[in-house]
Design a protein around this nucleic acid. Structure first.
Length: 645
DNA sequence: GTAGTATGTCATGGT
DNA sequence: GGACCATGACATACT
């Protein structure tokens, strides 16, 4: 993930530089800090996977970014903090007609390459620019896989006021979409092309065919491919937003404003999502999934286009078409590929939760959205937990149950792979509780909970023994069921282990009092809670121990390196001192040889020496070593004599 | 079969 | 006093 972030950041920086060259301001800081601060925490958390913090205590005190990323509080965290910030950031996302026109230019290039002659023949003087409707007809005729819907829309587009104003064309386009509900993504791409062509009419600078038509370089083709894909999703956005308030787009209103304005109308849009393609279209809008693998037909396009969305949200793409063309010539597709690969899982959650804020949305739709997500740290509990949390919210403390995700949600690969359908189908009293187990990092708790979602029947020991003797599939499932889980279910305790363990003590005591449990059930509940907490504590303890061992090993290595270095320095210093001493002795002999005593004889180096005073003066002093040595010898002799005596 | 590892659980002490 | 946490020790399952 860090590597991915690195690439993504580099891509952003490159894009920023390029955009700055053409005068487009990009606020990457807000983007990165907004989107990826939790991810940074995830990566840098020392032992975050094991730490269970009582976030229900910190709930009111911590700021959103202070909450541990793996904590289930992310639900609220994303929803209340980052989500709002990102929505505000998305507010900078314009639905600029310039952008669409720019996309038109790029999209029209392959069209011209493919059907250029035909369009020129049909239009005569101004190929591709004279009449959007006509060109749309050509596109319809020549593009493979173009649906009948597009062909049907073409005459309407030609008849509509699309040639006069972009707004009118957009509106017409939306009308067409409303008529034809099962619109495929590719068709949306076509419609976006048509729409762009309609927008193209409103840009005088682009009316020059000589300046506009010929771009056939590879970069332009890549760029056009990218933009055609991205505009697909942008068009999806347009389709939903303009579905109700086209003026928002025509007035270049931010996405935030548009979505707020259309809050009540999303339900309408989603109600019309009964058909498959439209649902897919909405998923495209809501999810911003980077992988896009789950989307049939337009997975790369969606991914790419969705990846471009945050860019559009961050970058105030107010540049004109010429600048954007320059941009298209400069930008590398790899940048967007990297961005696409990297990571917009958070956006997935953001959009899911963003849409979750809309009350008119069917929960099943959101659940489907999450169920389609490949892997997302937040999405793993964003979808499944949300129904559970909503259910628990009725009990006045929904967030208290969310602690169960404070553990290693990074382990949630199992949870991610679990189909949420099964969770939703799990209509027993365990439904809400097992949802939270999707991110429980404990293997014995998480996996079996999901495994047993499919089978509502409570497992029993006899069943376990039977299944153990069978093939490894159900045997593994049953074996992964924790003993406490089995006991709790056997005693008809309407709470999951996770709930029992993670609910606040006050709530736990209330549960014990209010549900009228028997003494055995109460004892079991307390044991489950104790064991669960101790399990986490043991995991934390072991993790700390490993960290301590690792830290000590590193320190040992560091100290060994330091010791070796100091030994080398010591040896070098000794050598240097020896050399300097020899030099001093030689200089002393030279100096003394030059000096004369009272009789005019040179000073004997063995009897005299040079001493450097504190003031820097060098003084000749007689050597006292013989006397000292003699005295020492006398002392030693005296000691020897004393010892003998 | 054995050693090593991972994990759960219990007991105990401290906060 | 109870809840919680940390940790050593033990048991069990797995490789």
């Amino acid at each position: 993930m860090q590597i991915a972030k690195k690439y993504f950041t580099e891509g952003l920086i490159q894009l920023t530089i390029l955009l700055s060259l053409i005068g487009v301001r990009v606020d990457i800081d807000s983007y990165l800090s907004g989107y990826y601060t939790p991810l940074i925490d995830i990566n840098l958390g020392p032992s975050s996977a094991y730490i269970q913090t009582p976030f229900h205590i910190l709930r009111d005190t911590l700021d959103g970014y202070g909450v541990h990323p793996k904590c289930p509080e992310l639900d609220h965290f994303f929803a209340s903090r980052r989500l709002l910030d990102e929505v505000r950031t998305l507010g900078s996302l314009r639905f600029p007609t310039q952008l669409n026109a720019w996309l038109v230019h790029q999209v029209s290039t392959p069209d011209n390459a493919d059907c250029g002659p035909s369009s020129s023949n049909t239009n005569g003087t101004n190929p591709g620019l004279e009449g959007p409707g006509n060109e749309a007809t050509d596109d319809c005729d020549h593009l493979p896989g173009s649906g009948q819907e597009v062909c049907q829309t073409t005459p309407e587009l030609g008849e509509g006021p699309c040639s006069t104003e972009a707004f009118g064309f957009l509106k017409e386009e939306n009308d067409v979409k409303e008529e034809d509900e099962p619109i495929a993504v590719t068709q949306l791409a076509h419609s976006s092309m048509l729409e762009q062509e309609g927008l193209l009419e409103g840009i005088p600078s682009l009316s020059d065919p000589g300046h506009y038509l010929p771009p056939t370089t590879d970069i332009d083709q890549h760029w056009s491919t990218l933009l055609s894909l991205s505009v697909t999703d942008l068009d999806d956005l347009d389709s939903l937003v303009t579905d109700t308030d086209i003026s928002a787009i025509s007035q270049d209103v931010s996405l935030h404003d548009a979505m707020v304005a259309n809050t009540g109308t999303f339900g309408v849009a989603l109600e019309r999502a009964g058909s498959g393609p439209v649902t897919q279209q909405q998923r495209t809008l809501l999810r911003l999934e980077s992988t896009g693998s789950s989307h049939s037909g337009a997975s790369p396009g969606m991914a790419l286009g969705l990846a471009a969305l945050p860019f559009a949200s961050v970058c105030n793409l107010t540049g004109n078409v010429s600048s954007q063309s320059t941009l298209g010539g400069c930008l590398d597709e790899a940048v967007f590929d990297q961005i696409n690969q990297l990571g917009l899982e958070s956006l997935d959650t953001i959009d899911t939760q963003l849409m979750g804020c809309f009350q008119n949305i069917d929960p099943q739709v959101l659940e489907d959205l999450d169920s389609d997500s490949g892997l997302s740290l937040e999405s793993s509990f964003g979808g499944p937990v949300s129904p559970g949390s909503s259910e628990m919210s009725s009990s006045s403390s929904s967030s208290s149950y969310c602690e169960d995700e404070c553990g290693a949600t990074g382990y949630s690969s199992e949870a991610d792979s679990i189909p949420s359908k099964g969770i939703m189908d799990y209509t027993t009293t365990w439904s809400s509780t097992d949802l939270s187990e999707s991110v429980w990092h404990d293997h014995s708790y998480s996996s079996p909970a999901f495994v047993n979602h499919s089978s509502v029947t409570l497992p029993h020991k006899g069943i376990q023994e039977d299944t153990f003797s069978d093939d490894s599939g159900p045997r593994l499932e049953e074996r992964e069921l924790s003993r406490d889980e089995i006991r709790a279910r056997a005693m008809c305790i309407p709470f999951s282990v996770l709930q029992i363990v993670n609910m606040p003590v006050e709530e736990f005591l209330d549960v014990l009092d209010s549900h009228g449990f028997s003494s055995a059930q109460v004892a079991l509940l307390r044991d489950i809670r104790r064991r669960g907490k101790n399990k986490l504590a043991a995991q934390n303890c072991r993790k700390r121990k490993l960290d301590a061992i690792t830290g000590l090993q590193e320190e040992v290595e560091r100290l060994q390196v330091q010791r070796d270095r100091l030994l080398r320095e010591k040896q070098l210093t000794a050598k240097t001192m020896g050399a300097v001493g020899q030099q001093i002795q030689q200089l002393t002999r030279d100096v003394l040889a030059l000096l004369r005593d009272d009789s005019g004889q040179p000073l004997n180096p063995e009897r005299f020496t040079l001493q450097c005073g504190a003031n820097g003066r060098v003084v000749v002093q007689p050597v006292r070593r013989p006397a000292v040595s003699a005295s020492n010898g006398n002392k030693t002799d005296k000691r020897k004599k004393e010892k003998k005596q």
